[in-house]
Design a protein around this nucleic acid. Structure first.
Lengths: 283, 283
DNA sequence: ACAAAAACTGAAATTTTATTACAAATAAGA
DNA sequence: TCTTATTTGTAATAAAATTTCAGTTTTTGT
């Protein structure tokens, strides 16, 4: 089981100032020792001011320093084994070890995403999807694949969604959006120029905008009415974005599941019809 | 459920004075609600003085009221018992419940896939990928998205892979394959006509074939030299293929991770070059 | 039954701890 | 380079926990 506080810190890391990061690092390396510390002891240990500590815990969305400590206490036990298992893949790992590490990495990404998930943002997103006249989904690279998955799911649920991977087509299509339309941008980094630009254009033309991203403080969030944050942490497999793809698909899956629940009749009907449509495409 | 604190109170019950017992009873019946109370709120709730509360917690051997609260908090950890939870999503589920069920469903799919994973098939697959002159990946529908992810990953690792989603292009391209080439078919059901046909054509022309599928006894496995099986179970969200997509991506991720390990220099080099290539596509 | 001692209790004072206000310092733009 | 915004720590303030102490109740021995 993952420690809640670690994923919260990881997910907010880029919103922290440099002295707040000192506090964050102290938490990550000293964990539960904070439980028997006061604000000023904590601040002395990190060589920052007391005010910084307070600002730090407030930035992580805790009501108070006590609240912060209670949260650490409640996942105290889990914290220990979190540090034990390293999912970094080394050259000398056997295939079995690699598979175990990939598995653990993915599970952690999922659990961390749950931890940082803001239910209300999903509920808001769902309402926009339900009422949208037209839904466009923008993504390039690996996020393009996620865009397609969302496209697939929304279509099977009976919603008028289209994924666009070509940046030119994104921009062109975004320019034709109107009030009541919905643009969904998917970008792991949140800094993909094409997706940010397309979303900006869509918003300028009156569309509501949603983004699915790891980085809550990235350019893409500035032009998004709703931010669905997935888990972000440096990836041990540097050349691939594995974990975050799974987290993004998880996010898509959540949207589909809630939609399926709140639009049950519609989804049921669309599901049957779309299933019938592909039945002769199977052996 | 708080448990530790309950047994402490029970064991000390007869040492408590009558007003301390009021405090004890409040703890027993209101449990973790105390977590967001101050000493004086707690004392008001029990109709005793603040001093009594302090004496009460000290009598239970806690260093301080905060210490007492931290103990309740760590006790309070709602031990989520995975096995017991049914992931079937019902109409009346709240968004929070839905998210939890989706999460659990995905984690189970991942864990189950690990269980049925045949390491040696992956090792064989890796060797074919390493030596292939040309790699084509076939998938339609949601498996098309998975095909794109595999395409993305292999390319970033420096392997000549191309995903083809259009069934006509798949067939045409498959017909041009030669010995030493590799065709990878992705089909959740294993019965997708287009993918099965494309793989058959590729094999007939001398290519080695790999499939990623949930169903080990499906048509697609008959024309595959290697079968990478992912988890299959009836999906609670009937209209979407959520779980199996994640399992398939997991499978793709395993391939990428092992490849990254066995072809370290090549992957490192390709990773750097491809990262450089996209750097000016980010803000 | 009745003192006297012991134990208990709560209001208020004190101490400790957390939070805020503000001004200095640093960084970022124009 | 100057201006503006952000970050940061110090000091003041607020809040919360703890202790003190005087008054009250209970217990115990006669």
């Amino acid at each position: 089981m993952i420690s809640k506080i670690i994923s919260i810190i990881e997910s907010r890391r880029d919103t922290l100032t440099s002295s707040e990061k000192k506090a964050a690092d102290f938490v990550l390396s000293n964990g539960s020792e904070i439980l028997n510390m006061t604000v000023s002891e904590f601040s002395n240990s990190c060589k920052v001011s007391e005010a910084t500590i307070i600002r730090f815990v407030k930035k992580l969305d805790f009501d108070s320093f006590q609240d912060f400590k209670l949260s650490i206490a409640s996942d105290n036990e889990s914290m220990k084994n979190y540090e034990d298992i390293d999912t970094t893949i080394n050259r000398e790992d056997t295939p079995q070890e690699i598979i175990k590490k990939v598995e653990l990495g993915i599970i952690r990404a999922i659990e961390s995403t749950t931890t940082i998930t803001d239910y209300s943002e999903y509920v808001k997103a769902i309402n926009y999807i339900r009422s949208a006249k037209r839904i466009e989904i923008y993504g390039v690279g690996s996020s393009g694949a996620v865009a397609k998955v969302l496209n697939y799911k929304l279509t099977r649920l009976g919603f008028p969604a289209f994924a666009i991977e070509d940046p030119h087509m994104q921009a062109i299509s975004a320019a034709t959006m109107k009030t009541g339309d919905l643009a969904i941008g998917i970008s792991q980094s949140g800094s993909t120029i094409d997706v940010v630009d397309s979303l900006t254009i869509a918003k300028k033309h009156g569309a509501t905008t949603i983004c699915i991203t790891d980085h809550v403080n990235s350019p893409v969030t500035k032009f998004s009415n709703i931010v669905l944050q997935t888990f972000s942490k440096e990836n041990p497999i540097k050349t691939s974005a594995g974990r975050s793809i799974v987290a993004q698909i998880y996010s898509v899956e959540i949207l589909a599941a809630i939609l399926n629940s709140v639009e049950y009749e519609k989804a049921e009907k669309a599901g049957k019809e779309t299933a019938k449509a592909v039945v002769n495409k199977l052996y």
